[in-house]
């Protein structure tokens, strides 16, 4: 179990929303770099070395592509480097491309961490109270997906063993796959009626349904939440005062460094590093425990 995922779903959701929204919408180079750094460290803690290496191999080309593509779409900026097809390629557009790539990858990485940490049951828990029927639908759908995948394989195998729809012809195979799809649909819909009978047998549809969850809001959740809110306030204050404003076009310019601005950078930096610190603390703690044992 990862340390960070042990927090209460609400705490986690608010954390991820704060970081993601800021990283996505507050276009300031320091903020963006902080977001990338935090996400990268966190992702590296959550994954093993092999996965991290795979990630790096995937994101570097993406980074280069996103950075280089921008000057093709955007001809703003005053510092013209050269002309291509009669269009100016500017230094500003180039730098903007890099900023765009940094943000893009930061957002993707944060989303990845979110997917690892916020498992479906946490998500369902969060919305179970407000939209009970829909959260039940979601829970059922998540239960059905792997079941149906297995059914697809079973039907395909059975058909192949009869020598059906496995010739070289592309249309024949496509037809087979489509037929398999509708057969599994029929099979599953038919079974679904049994599921709804089992729901009804256990009292589904009675008035005053309650909502159970195994999650408990613990003191450390409150602590993290409070910390999160404070840091977020610090960051947003800086932005609200206009101390984080930064322009790439027509010329790179930004507000000069001030106290609220610096405070915002520090706050957001700490916020993005929180999960990494929590994971690291846990690791060291366990090492220490083991050496004591």
């Amino acid at each position: 179990m990862k340390a960070f995922s042990g927090y209460h779903p609400l705490t986690l959701l608010i954390y991820f929303l704060s970081v993601l929204m800021t990283a996505m919408f507050l276009w300031n180079p320091v903020i963006q770099l902080e977001a990338l750094l935090g996400a990268g460290l966190f992702a590296a803690m959550l994954q093993n070395g092999k996965e991290t290496a795979g990630d790096i191999l995937f994101y570097i080309p993406l980074f280069i592509m996103a950075a280089l593509a921008n000057p093709l779409f955007s001809h703003n900026g005053v510092t013209i480097l050269f002309f291509m097809n009669g269009n100016p390629v500017t230094a500003e557009a180039f730098i903007y491309g890099i900023a765009l790539a940094v943000t893009l990858i930061a957002v993707l990485l944060w989303c990845k961490c979110y997917s690892i940490i916020m498992s479906s049951d946490k998500f369902i828990y969060l919305f179970g109270r407000a939209i009970p029927k829909l959260s039940l639908v979601l829970s059922m759908a998540l239960r059905f997906v792997p079941l149906f995948k297995r059914r697809f394989h079973k039907v395909r195998k059975a058909q192949r063993a009869m020598g059906m729809y496995s010739s070289k012809s592309y249309t024949d195979r496509l037809k087979g796959t489509l037929l398999t799809f509708s057969a599994v649909t029929s099979w599953s819909l038919e079974n679904a009626m049994e599921t709804s009978a089992s729901m009804k047998a256990r009292g589904y549809g009675l008035a005053g349904r309650s909502n159970f969850s195994i999650f408990r809001f613990a003191p450390h959740d409150f602590l993290l939440l409070a910390f999160n809110v404070l840091l977020m306030l610090g960051t947003l204050m800086g932005a609200a005062f206009g101390e984080l404003e930064f322009y790439y076009y027509p010329q790179i310019s930004g507000s000069s460094l001030s106290v609220p601005g610096l405070l915002a950078y520090v706050c957001f930096g700490v916020l993005t590093l929180l999960p990494f610190i929590i994971e690291l603390k846990e690791k060291i703690l366990w090492k220490y425990f083991i050496s004591k044992i």
Partner: peptide, 23 residues
């Protein structure tokens, strides 16, 4: 086909939720 939810603990609680028992 009788199992409704995706987690074991949720499945155990499903009927009790329907009865409206408190947490």
């Amino acid at each position: 086909s009788q199992t409704v939810t995706d987690k074991v603990w949720h499945e155990l609680a499903f009927g009790l939720e329907n009865l409206g028992l408190p947490q």
